[in-house]
Write a protein that binds this DNA or RNA. Structure first.
Lengths: 133, 133, 133, 133
DNA sequence: GTGGTCTAGACCACC
DNA sequence: GTGGTCTAGACCACA
């Protein structure tokens, strides 16, 4: 397998959140987008650490969190690989995250005096303009 | 002025987020709900610290953040008061928070493979069942 | 609160399993035995590391795993505490572990040619003699 | 001798435990089931490594562990064979493993607050539903 | 003072 | 070569 580091985008200590969370998010993004599939090997701890110019331990911590989330698995002497149910797990987690965020948005909107119609309007508005709009 | 601390609900280290943020959120909630109105005095630093059983510096930091957000203002020797435009400021902030949360929910939902219709379904579902449903 | 380290028993690199797992097991044992109750403070990372003569990071890793398992929670600036549902979580985990171990025992027993009666005999035998018998 | 590798089932890095332990377990399983009998020849190191798509050294380590356990013996230039007392050794080991697992299950069950009756109930429940139930 | 994050470097087990 | 564990030490945010 050739280098996968190009997928990981910019990892920066200036970005919000711990470095290892940025790596976790990058891997999850790739798995969710099916650019990393079950059985695919991830970059080795040492190679990814070198490419991202972060400590080996920072990458290891990211891989540990990914393994805890059931997205990847690690084998001594072999490397780290995308778990068979990795995509499934991610999808469930994302659904839950989406619901939690929508609930939070509703709570904030109601605190601002919006009713249900106003909230739907807001969501429709965002949908039309795109997430970045 | 009688004690306002009863409004602040449970401030607990077990809750997510720093203690001072919990206090900030509690004050904002009271202002948004018009239970605290422009000109109303907030509890003194020391009395609130005592009632919530947190350190004085923690309450001070919360009041500083509230003042920075334009929700309250402090006068040396007099205490802290709800700002005239406190409700307005809050409303704007809540709208922004709602938009940000909805965008985050959409991003997570899309990562899970949901389309726009699916997202609207999810929001409608949540609206019908209530925020806690 | 006085020192809790006396509860943790011997932590030794010679013992089987990682040091941090020994700490995890010790805390879980204390919680399961109700010698540590919801809300109780655990020893600080630094103090426990000093008392057990292990690295701060080793203790931190143990506390991270305990937090992941829902047994404790940590708050910056305050310390680590037994979670409200800590005992519940542990009980569920122990039930699952017990079932898994019994299944494994049955599988091994059957591979040795034992039938169901033989397995029950074996368990009764062990129960009478005690776990250490 | 025809290939025996078909007996070894899936050897996968995704499975729990080192690869060589999976091979050891597979051979022990075949011997315990009398599908491999005393004097039977095992596949050569190289042929088994090729069929399982693992390294030769991994198979070698598995055979070494099996020889250490008295289940097989190796003769230079001839290959590896099931030991005369292989089945007996295995039976003893399985009995010990079963006892150890049952003790572990009891310990976990007691930590969860179960008494002896509860443990017997659990075992009976598992026996009725089958190991996979 | 507390925990949260990151670093550099070591030794071990597995392949 | 790989990941798994442990160490010593730094800096930051929170109380």
């Amino acid at each position: 397998m050739t280098s996968l580091a190009f997928m990981f985008g910019p990892i920066s200590p200036a970005a919000p959140g711990p470095l290892y969370e940025q790596i976790v998010a990058a891997v999850k993004r790739e798995v969710a987008a099916n650019r990393l599939n079950p059985g695919d090997a991830l970059p080795s701890l040492r190679s990814l650490a070198a490419e991202l110019m972060v400590s080996l331990i920072t990458v290891k911590r990211a891989y540990e969190e990914l393994e805890k989330d059931g997205v990847i698995y690690s084998r001594q002497g072999l490397g780290a690989f995308v778990a068979d149910a990795g995509g499934e797990r991610l999808r469930e987690q994302n659904i839950e995250a989406a619901q939690a965020a929508l609930r939070a948005g509703m709570a904030a909107g109601r605190a601002a005096g919006l009713d249900d119609a106003g909230l739907l309007d807001m969501l429709n508005h965002i949908l039309k303009e795109g997430i970045d709009g």
